[in-house]
């Protein structure tokens, strides 16, 4: 592999100093893509199956839009989950926190302040729950699994209490929220753009900022990170707050798509988000992973759901298929990890 790369850089001998490293980034990028080839291939295969089994329904613009809209809610959550998992943690509370944010934002009291305050409310509730998770984990030394499991249960309960277990409808004057899913730009609803923006910003933060680097360091070897002068606790806190923020944004999307706030929203989203991250090649032990992989993993999942619905198949079979895919993906990655070294 040395020969082609040295040819690549031959014309730029002046800057030899930083060439090797830039090359290394390209290498890593390529490696990343190589790792993602499997996922892209899976997407293509699924698309082919879709076209073959449902020639009239699958490749329609309305179906593509519905796949993307479906993906955008969990997609935003997946971005946050990727950060947490690369940072060596886990956040089980995402679905429940999103539900709580949707309920809090759609109470009559909040709704009376208009759509902007509702959106802000959802974001604050999500971030606040994330901060509580982070404080418990980083400073209270709770195991992430336990702290976020407790948050899952408690946030769901609080959402039920606030809503009296009723589905809260968007008031007509707050149509602006709903318009996020009904207004289309370039044929796509705005929520898809929200997802795209969150994913893009997430990618930049993860790959181009000190915050992203520290996330890898903290997840890969917390002791080494601490001894290198990184404030590991504060960083851990921020990671969970970030995950909560993503849940808040996801709550806005789910309100837009369903025109409701409900304590039942986002049931088992945590499993879908974690599964997407893992399929995407992120190590559950932390320190390694990519956001692109997570999003591809999520699209694979969403497309499977879509295919099963279009073909009128049982949702139970869909769950079985997802389980099988998780196992296969992880087995393939393990082989991939071994071979380079």
């Amino acid at each position: 592999m040395d020969a082609p790369t040295s040819q690549d850089t031959a014309p730029r001998t002046k800057q030899q100093g930083d060439r090797p490293y830039t090359r290394s980034m390209m290498m890593l990028g390529r490696l990343g893509e190589a790792r993602h080839v499997g996922l892209v291939l899976a997407l293509v295969i699924l698309a082919v199956i879709g076209v073959v089994t449902q020639p009239d329904n699958f490749a329609t613009s309305s179906n593509v839009v519905s796949i993307l809209a479906l993906a955008s809610t969990i997609g935003v959550i997946t971005v946050g989950a990727t950060f947490v998992i690369i940072g060596g943690g886990i956040d089980l509370s995402v679905g429940a926190v999103m539900a709580l944010a949707s309920v809090w934002a759609t109470t009559l009291a909040t709704q009376s302040y208009g759509p902007y305050v509702m959106a802000l409310c959802a974001i604050l509730v999500g971030t606040g729950a994330g901060l509580v998770n982070g404080i418990l984990i980083a400073y209270g030394r709770l195991v992430p699994f336990i702290a976020t499991l407790a948050m899952l249960v408690a946030a769901r309960g609080l959402a039920q209490r606030m809503s009296d277990r009723r589905t809260q409808l968007l008031q007509p004057e707050n149509n602006a929220i709903e318009s996020l899913s009904t207004t289309r730009v370039l044929g796509l609803p705005l929520v898809v753009f929200i997802f795209a923006a969150v994913a893009l910003i997430g990618w930049l933060v993860l790959n181009r900022t000190t915050f992203g680097r520290r996330t890898f360091a903290v997840g890969g070897n917390p002791e080494a990170a601490r001894l290198a002068g990184i404030n590991v606790r504060r960083h851990t806190l921020l990671l969970y707050a970030l995950s909560g923020l993503c849940c808040g944004i996801a709550a806005i999307i789910i309100m837009a798509r369903t025109t409701t706030g409900s304590s039942t929203h986002g049931d088992l989203y945590e499993l879908d988000a974690i599964a997407a991250v893992i399929i995407g090649g992120t190590l559950l032990t932390g320190g390694r992973g990519t956001l692109v992989g997570s999003i591809l993993g999520l699209l694979v999942f969403t497309m499977i759901t879509n295919l099963f619905i279009l073909n009128g198949l049982d949702t139970s079979d869909q769950l079985i298929a997802k389980g099988v895919i998780i196992v296969i993906a992880v087995l393939l990655q393990r082989r991939g990890l071994r071979s380079p070294t």
């Binding site: 490293y21 890969g220 990170a225 990184i230």
Partner: peptide
């Protein structure tokens, strides 16, 4: 166990303690 980020490159391992010097607003 205490110093190296074993999964990462030599470069990342060298710059990990001085990242703030290479960053403006993160």
């Amino acid at each position: 166990s205490q110093a190296l980020l074993l999964d990462e490159s030599v470069a990342s391992n060298i710059s990990v303690a001085s990242m703030r010097r290479y960053a403006s607003f993160g």
